[in-house]
Every structure is written in C-alpha cells, then in structure tokens.
Design a protein around this nucleic acid. Structure first.
Length: 858
RNA sequence: GCGGGCGUGGCGGAAUUGGUAUACGCAGCGGACUUAAAAUCCGCUCCCUUCAUGGGUUGAGGGUUCGAGUCCCUCCGCCCGCACCA
C-alpha cells in the first residue's frame, strides 16, 4: 500500500510558494484588506508547541481569509530584547546579540518548515537599531506631549549582587542567584502616563466586540474604577506642623461612624517622618521593605501593623480620636496610601481589629434586622442595609448615606467626592543592557536633556562585559560620557533601557511598512490598521494588550496614526499540555525517555524501572514534559502536527499533546491521500459536467458536500476549528462508503474529494496543494477561492422531532419540515410508547416547539 | 490574599445557545486480510438492570422551568494574571 511522502511534498511546495512569492502583499484597492497577526515570539532558542499552536491558528485564518477574497497581511518578526539573553550571556559566555541572532536563525528555519503563509519580506527584529530608533523618537515625542515623566519608584534590590531583580528573579523573597533576602529600594525611573487615558481605555472596552468577554472584564478590573470620597482627618497634637491633615480614600464613606482606626502605608511620607522620632517604627518599616515589590507578595504576607501613638480626630464626633497604625497591607500606590478602618464592614479591617484589640462598631444593619441586637462575629457585614449608630445618617440606606456624608464633608471642608483608579502609570526604566536605550542625557547644569533627533538612534555598545553584577551600560568606560547637547559641558547618558513591553506595543504598526524611514508610513498604517484578528496567549490578557491600547492612543495624540484601538478582533489560545513522568527517585523524565513495556506499564528506557505518570500540565522545561516540534515535523510532517493541533481542542482551551493523537492525525492524512490517489470508484474527469440524474446515494453525497461547506465556513468564521475538522471527517466517511455502482458515483466522488481538499487547504496546506494537483488541476490551491454551498441543497424536507412525556424522552417522529401544531400533536399522541407513558392520565398541556420537540405534560 | 476563567464516557471533545446529552476522534475489545506482524478494512464500546422493557448520568448539593450540560445560589477541584519573565 502506498504512503504519503510528506518530506518530499512539504519541501517541494514550500520552495514553490517561496519562489513564486505567493504570500507577499501590497496595498491594493480592488480587495478588502484583512490583517491577521499572531503574537511575535521571543527568540528563546527553538520553537515550542505553544508557538506551533499559535502560528497554526493564525495561518488557518490567513489562508481562509485569502480564499474568501481578502487582501491578507500576515507578517512575522521577533520580540528580540529581554532578560533571557543576558542570563544566557552570564551562563554561557555568549554575547546577547550573538545569542539572539543565532536563535532567530534557528527559529526562522523551524517556522518555515511549518509552511506558514507569512510575507517574510516584512520580517522585523526589535533589537535592530532600524527598529528601535523609531521607538526612541516616539519617546521624545511623548516627552514633548507631556506623556512621560520621571519619579522615584521601588525596585527589588539584591544587596549582594548590587543589582535590581525582576519579580521572577525573586524566589520566596530571596535573590535567585545570591539566595539573600531582597530589599525594596527607591530609584528615579521613567514613567509613561497611561493614566492620561484611563477613562478612554475603560470606556472603549465596550467597542471591542470581537474580544473575549473575559479579557475585557480582566482589563476593566485591572483599571479598577471606583467611586468614593477623599476625607481629611485632623491629626491630634499636630501643633508644631499646623494644618497637617491625613487624607484617606474610601469607597465606603457611609461607614465613617464605624471607623475605629486609621492606617498608612510603610512608605507614606507621614510614616517616614514619624520614624525619625521612633526607631522601633523605623525597624518596622524596614521589615515591611524586606518583602518583594509584587502585589501578590505584599498581599500574601501576614497582615501586621505598628501603632504609632499618633491619634487622629473623627470629622463628625467631637472629641473622638482613633489610633494611627502603619500597616503592611496598605499600598502607597492605591488611593492616597492611607485608609480609615471600619472593622464591622470590611473583612480585612475586621481581622486587623481582632488581632490588635480595636473596637468593632456596626453601622449598617440588614434591612429587617433588629438594630439593637445586630452584632458582628467573624464575618464583616458588607451587603446593603440601613445605617445605625451613625448620628445624622441613621435610617438611610447605604447609597443615600454615601451622598449625605459627602455633602457634609464638603460643607465642612473636610473632604470631597472622588473617583479613584487602580491603574498606575507604566514604569518603563530597566537597569539592564539588552534593551532599547532611553534617549536622554543628564547634565549637571541643564538637567534632563532629550537626545537631539539628529543624534538618533542611540545605539547599544557591543563591547560590554556581562560577567559582573549590575548594568553593563553603567560600567562601560566611555559610552555614557557625552557632551550636553544644550551647554556642551560634560554630561552623562541615561543608562537605563526600556521595558521590552515598549517594543511590543507598536510592532503591529511597523509591519505595515517595515522599511519606512519613519516608524511607519502613515498611508500604509491607514490602509492596514487596525489588526483585524490578533491571536495569542491568554497570559497577555492585561499587560501587553493594555499597553498596546495605550500606545495606540499616545501615537494618535502625537499624529502618528488615526486609530484608537490596535486590535479589532482577539483570539486567546490555551496552553499545550503533556503528562509528566518521574522515575523511582522522583526525577523528571522527558517523554522520549520512557516507553510502554510489554505488560502495559510505563518504564524508563534506560534501566527499565517503573515510571510514575503525573497528570497533564503545561509543557515546561522544569518538568521535562516537552515535545520538540522539530522532532514531530521530521517524523510526521507539518500538516500532521497542524491537523492535530486544530482537531483535538477548541483554540481557547488547553490542549493535551498525546502520541496517540498525533498518530491518529497521521493515519487520517494517509487515508485522505489514498482516497484521492487510489480511489475505489474511478473519478469523473476534471471539469466534467454533472449528469442530469444521479442515483440516490450520489445525490445524498452531493447534498452532504454542500451541507459540509456551509457548516465548515460557519465554523471557521467562529474559530471552531475542531468542529470543522469533525465535519469534514464525517463527510470523508460518507464519501468512502459511496457505492461505485450508484449512478453518478464518479462525479459525486470527484466533487466530494475536491471540496474536502479545498476545505482542508488552510489547515493542511502541503497535502492539499499536492492532492489538488493529483486531481488534475494546474492552479495553486493556495490561490483558489473558497467553495460556496448551494442554498437549495441545504433545505431539508423532513425533520426528526423528539417526543417527551413529562420531560422524559419516549420516542421520535419523522415529520415534514414546518408541520403545524395539530399534525405534530396528533402524531405524537399516537405513538405507542407515548400512550403507554401517559397511562390513561389526563393530558394537561402539550408543548410543541416546531421542528424540535413535543412535550406532553400529564 | 485579590481579579478572571474552567469542570461532560477510560481520554480529547460535540450539543444549532433553554429543547433527542455523549457527534467526530483517541484508546480498548471482537472479526476480516496475512505463514506472522505492521498497515488497512468491518463491527462493538457512558453506567446499572434486563430475554426485553426500564432506570441513572454533564465536579457536589440546592433552586427556577413543561423541559437545565446550558440560567440562579452554595460548596469542591484545577488553571491564568497580579504591574521588572515574555
């Protein structure tokens, strides 16, 4: 029996497509444009299965839209700056530029072996000065537009390595290389003013109709708009510092009469000031600063506080004062860095109060509760209710009480209504080498001076040493020494580089005109943008996508482009998982290190000892549950890998990689290949007219083909690739069973097979291109239009209707489509099983859903 | 800790969005072909009970409805994000 030679076939068509420049595109007026983009990869070394999945999904969309008549832009590039290159430099003594370049070469070769329909002439790498010089220009334009500023901000500091650590380099509060406890430290850093667009970023989420709801919801929560009040508390005995007041933000100003303490962040200016007179407070603040800078680390830490001895006055109760604490769970970045605590109606405040013996005064009671008897136990009461113990607020519901409090506060000059956001400005400074230099110069006389545009790009120096801790740019003997562009005196270059999220915030626009002298040609950008379909991992749901949305608005403000939203459609794909293996000593094993023994158990290839199989988890190097895409492509071909990736799970869910699954996909490819190359029924000649009369079997097959075309088109429009494949497989099963004696079988089979080949084109481009030619065609399948179903062939004459008695299925009926109520009801009540189930009881009601179901209620 | 999501046979999943649960595939079992194996082809396969009829089942429990995998509430488990990984 013949087998499909994927190696030869895939290489052949890849060469021909490339040679004919089939996927190179330009702007054109005669077709609608469609821009499909997959998140570009970080060049970490070799492609992994997550890439294969991501790029397969994108390629199906690109090829499908091309067939549907769109002028499709489908580019690829490299997110080439980042921390791993520096780690590799330290570990392997290889220059980050060299390492990155080698990795790109490897990964480009691997991607090309997948047969992806990219316009490779548009390839970009963000570490190329031709790319990042435009980013430096953007930064200067943002600076002019007031969208950039400098301020002090906290970083993770490793006191042994004398260097700043990324959150991922802090493990259990310790530096990953040094193992010593990490401290927080203040550093002057550059910030992009994303908060200038907060309301817009929030409001415009509604316009992103083709984004998953969960991503929009996550962004909404991330921006975190809340309404409340800013309240000023007088500080007792603040005689030396007249007029000093503590400002807090609260979303529950209605609970002000339940306030029994106040707390400020460890790095609140008042805490710093008080620490000057209280060394134990200083120690406490130092302890707080020993936890990491990540919100998770802060929130997960045990909640502790320090009573300062300072007391603050209640704004409405004369003579009432409350203790002021410094607490590790109050964040300086949120609100004013200060809160008032109302333990009765906030769970965290309640736990804090119980721990430090602070009073708990209920001020909101459930509507029908007995106010006298209402007490707080272990749970704070956070629902709506009626105000009690609250002077002028008593009897009001929460909403009205909030308004009443704000009114009084404003009248007393002790506060105001206010809106607050969780969103903070974007800190873009990184104390690292392998990133885009920030184009400013520090002059002792002139201050911060932007690098003049004629001096761009500020290029990274090549001659750096990465074997010592700290930023190599800082240590470089000459690079940072420059004359001040304004006064000409000796000055110092900024040695911080950009967060790599900056590069990925505008790369989609660079692809529109990758060789332009400016960041991008405005006309090209106007033609191609926004991206019609963006595809990538859910892990980018907030940061990358929000930063890109911000950047697009900032670029618009600076006149670069005219759109607000960069990505009109978004598809977030799930992870690729694999089961895990451990040997008898608990060490992880790669899948290729284990095998199934004769008795069915799984053992290690080396030594034959039994292996414990763990559940399927995200593929990761640390657990060794990875399968190398290149090995799969060498063993089965790209089309098999693509088919399996698409057929086994819907794109937004996790996918389990299994050997059995890939084997099954491979068998199917061969089956299809044989159906075309060794047909059981001789195929009608190419282009032959359809005979006047076909046998019943052939006619049914033709109808099935039309139904499949309609179904698959609909599935692909909704990204239900797994369902589309199931449908086509059903059709091939039917075509395989077509009796060759049936009149018109050869014609029906040709029509069926040609359609199957065309429908599978976007998913398995090499095999189908080859079969298309085997079927006698000389055009490129990749250039063929998408098949269209004949609407007349889709109409069913009869439908199967389910018949239930009291909601339980008792039989089915074959009825003409759109039968009227009476016909359906009469037929249903005549069914033997239905009569038996009714058992002579009176029929109360008969529900008829046309063409669907009949339910008899007795 | 906070925010978001997911949960359907031995496994991946389907279910026209409130109307016949388990399509399609994987694995398994039986058969055909073969000296034999591989490959291929045919058949069976959610669970319990039965000659048959029947009954049960969508992580667990409750609710709404003529009817719930789908909507609501409570709980359990797993996953993603938390601003210096990308």
């Amino acid at each position: 029996m013949s087998r499909y030679n994927f190696k030869e076939t895939e290489a052949k068509w890849q060469a021909i497509w490339e040679d004919r420049k089939l996927f190179a595109v330009g702007e054109r007026a005669d077709k609608p444009k469609y821009y499909v983009l997959e998140m570009f990869p970080y060049p970490s070394g070799r492609i992994h299965m997550g890439h294969v999945r991501n790029y397969t999904l994108g390629d199906v969309v690109a090829r499908y839209k091309r067939a549907r008549g769109f002028n499709v832009l489908h580019p690829m590039g490299w997110d080439a700056f980042g921390l791993p290159a520096e780690n590799a430099a330290i570990d392997n003594k290889i220059h980050p530029a060299r390492w990155t370049k080698d990795n790109i070469a490897t990964m480009r070769r691997q991607l090309k072996a997948m047969g992806l329909s990219y316009d490779w002439s548009r390839e970009i790498a963000t570490c190329d000065p031709e790319y990042y010089r435009h980013e430096q220009k953007m930064f200067l334009d943002f600076l002019k537009a007031g969208l950039v500023y400098r301020k002090e901000s906290w970083v993770n500091w490793d006191p042994v390595e004398n260097t700043v650590l990324a959150n991922e380099q802090v493990i259990d509060g310790k530096g990953w290389r040094s193992g010593v406890v990490v401290e927080k430290r203040l550093l002057a850093q550059w910030f992009l003013k994303i908060t200038a667009f907060t309301e817009e970023l929030l409001r415009d989420l509604k316009t992103l109709e083709r984004w998953p709801d969960r991503v929009r919801l996550m962004q909404e929560k991330w921006i975190g708009r809340s309404e409340g009040a800013y309240i000023l508390f007088d500080i007792e005995d603040a005689s030396k510092d007249e007029g000093e007041r503590l400002e807090v933000y609260s979303t529950r100003p209605d609970t002000i009469f339940g306030a029994t303490f106040a707390a400020i962040a460890a790095n609140h200016p008042l805490a710093q000031k008080l620490a000057g007179k209280d060394s134990r407070l200083g120690d406490f603040i130092a302890t707080c600063n020993r936890s990491g800078t990540s919100e998770a680390a802060i929130e997960l830490a045990e909640k502790v506080g320090y009573e300062t001895g300072v007391r603050i006055r209640h704004p409405f109760v004369n003579g009432k004062t409350m203790p002021l604490y410094v607490a590790n769970f109050v964040l300086m970045e949120y609100g004013t860095g200060a809160i008032f605590g109302c333990p009765a109606h906030d769970q965290r405040d309640l736990e804090f109060a119980r721990k430090y013996g602070i009073d708990v005064i209920p001020v909101v009671a459930p509507k029908n509760a007995d106010a006298e008897a209402f007490a707080i136990g272990a749970e704070a009461y956070t629902d709506d209710g009626v105000l009690i113990n609250s002077d002028f607020l008593d009897g009001l519901v929460v909403e009205d009480a909030k308004k009443a409090v704000v009114k009084r506060l404003e009248a007393a000059g002790a506060g105001r209504k206010g809106v607050n956001y969780r969103l903070r400005d974007w800190g873009v400074s990184r104390q690292r080498y392998w990133g885009c230099p920030i184009p400013v110069i520090h002059c002792a006389a002139c201050g911060v001076v932007p690098v003049p545009e004629r001096d761009l790009p500020v290029v990274l120096p090549d001659d750096v040493t990465l074997d010592k801790p700290g930023n190599p740019l800082e240590r470089h003997p000459t690079w940072k020494n420059v004359p001040c562009p304004t006064c000409g005196n000796k000055a110092r270059r900024e040695t911080d580089t950009f967060d790599t999220f900056v590069e990925s915030s505008w790369y989609f626009a660079r692809f529109c005109s990758p060789d332009a002298d400016t960041a991008f040609d405005r006309r090209s950008a106007d033609y191609w943008l926004p991206v019609d379909q963006y595809i990538g991992g859910i892990e980018h749901a907030v940061l990358h996508l929000l930063y890109s949305r911000f950047f697009t608005r900032a670029l618009r403000q600076c006149g670069y482009l005219g759109i607000k939203e960069p990505f009109a459609g978004l598809l977030t794909q799930g992870m690729v998982c694999h089961e895990t293996y451990r040997d008898d000593e608990g060490r992880w094993l790669f899948p290729e290190q284990v095998e199934r023994a004769a008795d069915g158990t799984v053992v290690a290839k080396a030594g034959g000892k039994p292996v414990t199989i763990g559940r399927s988890e995200k593929m990761s190097k640390s657990r060794k549950n990875v399968v190398d895409p290149e090995a799969i492509i060498n063993a089965y071909g790209a089309d098999t890998a693509r088919l399996f990736m698409l057929s086994d799970s819907p794109p937004d869910r996790d996918l389990d990689w299994t050997d059995a699954g890939i084997e099954g996909a491979w068998r199917y490819l061969n089956r299809l290949w044989r159906m075309v190359n060794e047909p059981k029924t001789p195929l009608a000649p190419v282009g032959a007219a359809t005979p006047k009369s076909l046998g019943a079997g052939s006619e049914a097959a033709v109808r099935a083909v039309h139904k499949t075309v309609a179904g698959v088109s609909d599935d692909l429009d909704r990204f239900h690739f797994n369902k589309a494949i199931a449908r086509i497989r059903e059709l091939t099963n039917q075509l395989d069973g077509l009796d060759s004696k049936n009149p018109g079988a050869g014609r029906a089979l040709r029509f069926g097979l040609e359609t199957v080949v065309r429908l599978f084109g976007p998913m398995m481009p090499h095999l189908t291109e080859d079969l298309w030619h085997s079927l006698g065609h000389e055009t490129f399948l990749a250039n063929e239009p998408w098949p269209v179903a004949d609407a007349a062939q889709l109409v069913e004459q009869n439908v199967t209707v389910a018949v239930q008695v009291n909601g339980k299925l008792r039989g089915t009926l074959d009825l003409p489509k759109d039968s009227d109520r009476e016909t359906a009801e009469t037929a249903a009540l005549a069914l033997g099983n239905v009569v038996a189930a009714i058992g002579g009881k009176p029929v109360r009601k008969v529900i008829v859903v046309p063409n669907r179901i009949i339910n008899v209620v007795v």
